[in-house]
Amino acid sequence: MTQTALPDPATLNAIPRMGQGVYWQDISVGQQWRTFRRTITEADLVGFINVTGMVEAIFIDAAFESGAINGRPVPGALTYTMIEGFILQSMIQGTGLAMLELHQKILGPVLVGDSVQALVEVTAIRPTSKSNRAVVTSQITVYNQRQEVVMEYTATRLLAGRP
């Protein structure tokens, strides 16, 4: 088997990176994306509880009788982090520098077996005076498989500019 030699570093760096996020110059106010949809499983809930220590009875006891929600509710933080994972893997991978501010409203329950996805809309872009960066604000609307809005949040991030 012959082995192909890699191009020199300058040529290699000029090849687009798979999964690279967007630079602030390549987006505009009003631009929208929708994430993939993902079904939240019992394994997701258990893993999240184990990592975070959120051992509240409504999350750890499938037969908990005093809860206000029927079914297996999941923490809002789990829903949020799943959506942020989609955003990281697509919009801000390699270009997101910092989460600066977050305002979140949980509007409805998410249960094990629900499928969630989000609509992301850029609402503001403010270039900084330093290092080819911009502060980008987005409105994220999370909804379930029945098109019910279960969460809304505004995220303000620092994004890198084109090299």
Rank of each mutant, 00 (worst) to 15 (best):
E121K: 15
T95L: 00
N132H: 07
L97T: 13
T95C: 02
A118V: 12
P109E: 01
Q93W: 09
D114V: 15
I106Q: 02
T95H: 02
S115K: 11
R126L: 07
G94L: 05
L119E: 06
Q104F: 04
M99S: 12
N132K: 12
K130A: 05
P109S: 03
G108S: 04
G94P: 11
G108I: 04
M99F: 04
D114K: 14
E101V: 14
L100A: 02
M99R: 08
L107N: 10
E121L: 07
I125Q: 03
G113R: 12
T123P: 06
Q104A: 01
Q117D: 10
G108F: 01
I106M: 04
L107F: 02
A98W: 10
Q93T: 15
H103R: 15
T95N: 00
K130W: 11
A118Y: 07
G94E: 03
E121M: 11
V120E: 00
R133M: 09
A124Q: 11
A98S: 08
E101A: 11
E121G: 09
S129T: 14
G96A: 05
E121V: 15
S129L: 11
I106H: 00
Q93K: 14
L119Y: 03
R133S: 06
V110A: 00
A124D: 10
L107V: 09
K130D: 05
T128Y: 03
G94C: 06
G96K: 07
Q117C: 13
D114P: 10
S129V: 13
I106L: 05
P127I: 15
N132P: 09
A98T: 14
T128G: 04
L107W: 05
G96E: 07
Q93H: 14
G96T: 14
K105M: 08
Q104C: 06
S129H: 14
L111A: 04
Q117R: 15
Q117G: 15
P127N: 10
G94V: 12
S131M: 13
R126W: 07
Q117I: 12
T95W: 02
M99L: 10
T123C: 01
M99H: 09
Q93P: 14
V120H: 04
Q93E: 13
L97H: 08
L119D: 08
A124L: 02
A124H: 10
A124C: 05
D114L: 11
L119T: 15
Q93A: 13
P127W: 10
Q117F: 10
A118C: 07
S129C: 09
A98M: 08
N132D: 02
